[in-house]
């Protein structure tokens, strides 16, 4: 239990630091930034209580918001994907999830890819529609969502592959 706690605290601090100090300054082609900190929500242990999980997601979103002066857009997006995660898990992993035995290091690549993609796209849609907050600029919203999602998904998958423990 303690090792899980320490892993998640370290992950929280490392991901927030990485996000605000490095990734927010990439500005690829002027506006495309990856939001890799959602890996905290994606990789959070499944067995823990849902209320704690949603609360922690809110805290990580709010931390990013304070650093980037963006009001509450990251917090809102994080809370939403945290709430939607069990449904997405069920959809992607099916019976493995029902028995509560999903280990992200050992699941198939295709279902992991689908899981990360759904959560990332959902997060980015909420994030950018709240950021732009203007129906007449829907094309800009979709454009930002699409490009940033691609960037985020690639980086998330790379990070999970690089840092996975080979316990097969």
């Amino acid at each position: 239990m303690n090792s899980v706690l320490y892993t998640n605290i370290t992950r929280f601090i490392l991901l927030v630091g990485l996000q605000v100090l490095v990734l927010n300054h990439i500005n690829f082609l002027g506006y495309i930034n990856p939001y890799v900190y959602i890996l905290f929500i994606i990789l959070f242990p499944i067995k823990n209580s849902r209320t704690l999980f949603i609360f922690l997601s809110f805290i990580i979103g709010l931390t990013i918001d304070i650093f980037t002066d963006s009001g509450g857009i990251h917090a809102a997006a994080c809370v939403s994907i945290a709430y939607a995660r069990p449904i997405v898990l069920k959809f992607c992993f099916g019976t493995v999830y029902e028995y509560q035995t999903v280990k992200f290091d050992t699941v198939e690549f295709s279902s992991k890819f689908l899981y990360i993609t759904i959560l990332t796209v959902l997060h980015h849609i909420i994030l950018f529609s709240l950021e732009i907050f203007n129906i007449s600029k829907v094309i800009l919203t979709v454009q930002k969502t699409l490009f940033s999602s691609i960037f985020t998904i690639i980086l998330c998958i790379l990070v999970t592959i690089i840092f996975s423990r080979k316990t097969k």
Partner: peptide, 10 residues
């Protein structure tokens, strides 16, 4: 939590 963050956003 969602409504709190929406309030901050608005």
């Amino acid at each position: 939590l969602f409504s709190i963050s929406l309030t901050f956003t608005i």
